[in-house]
């Protein structure tokens, strides 16, 4: 059984191939890491999956449903959550309101013009925030949160849409080592208990090798390797283009 299946994905910008013939699948409860050098096409891949970029060729299926070329909001409504490399939250709202709005959007209750938001989906939002240890901050403005908390809020907002697949673009970038471990442990926990599939890009090899079930390596737009941590570490091509000797990144 698969949640996401990608077949023959291609995209070029001004004649330059950014992604060439990429195919893979993700199973429920699986954590799949997408790694590769800067400019290898990871972001392009990600943006095609969530609909920000329309692929030149290839198909993207979510379960049985073809979501190729759908705009981001429709991909989101089909059950794909996303966190961004540079966090994107609603700065003029409190932490709780951010999550309440995500619930309302998911349940298509945006067009209510009169009933105040304050009382709607409040309990659901608090339950979710509690799960992510964010409840004590529920009344603070999202715009003044510390970076690590912002990342967790973004995760909460993504989860409020009850996704089947979660796309995380460099989820731990800019976090201290301890926070990285905690955040990825949380993600792992979600995947195991709810069957949520998680696809993430990452440059911290401690995180990648420590949490991913399976790893895909992208170089110059093409997949050059796929496998578990041991297989990827032992792969000569991956060492040459990406991992290096591993002395500076914990990739040893």
């Amino acid at each position: 059984m698969t949640i996401l299946s990608v077949a023959g994905l291609r995209k070029s910008f001004g004649g330059v191939q950014a992604v060439t013939d990429v195919s893979f699948t993700v199973a429920p409860g699986e954590m799949l890491a997408l790694i590769g050098p800067n400019g290898a096409g990871k972001s392009t891949c990600f943006n095609m999956l969530n609909g920000q970029i329309r692929p030149d060729a290839g198909t993207i299926h979510l379960g049985p449903l073809d979501i190729t070329g759908l705009p981001p909001r429709r991909v989101a409504r089909q059950g794909v959550g996303r966190t961004f490399q540079i966090t994107a939250t609603f700065a003029s709202m409190t932490v709780r309101e951010n999550v309440q709005l995500a619930f309302l959007a998911h349940h298509r209750r945006i067009w209510h013009l009169l009933r105040p938001l304050a009382a709607q989906y409040r309990a659901e939002a608090d339950t979710l925030l509690d799960r992510l240890d964010m409840l004590p901050q529920a009344d603070r403005a999202a715009g003044i949160l510390a970076y690590g908390d912002l990342k967790r809020l973004e995760l909460a907002v993504a989860l409020a849409g009850q996704p089947r697949l979660l796309l995380m673009d460099e989820p731990t970038a800019g976090m201290a080592p301890a926070e990285r471990v905690a955040l990825m442990r949380l993600a792992r926990d979600l995947a195991t208990t709810t069957g949520l599939a998680i696809l993430f890009t990452e440059h911290d090899m401690d995180v990648v090798f420590g949490t991913a079930d399976r790893i895909l390596v992208l170089n110059r737009g093409a997949l050059i390797a796929a496998g578990d941590a041991a297989a990827i570490r032992a792969n000569h091509a991956v060492r040459a283009v990406y991992l290096g000797s591993g002395t500076t990144t914990g990739g040893h």
Binding site: R73, A76, R77, A91, M93
Partner: peptide, 11 residues
């Protein structure tokens, strides 16, 4: 606040 995020939650 963030059009990217708004679209990502289905707005």
């Amino acid at each position: 606040d963030s059009e990217r995020r708004a679209e990502a939650i289905g707005l």
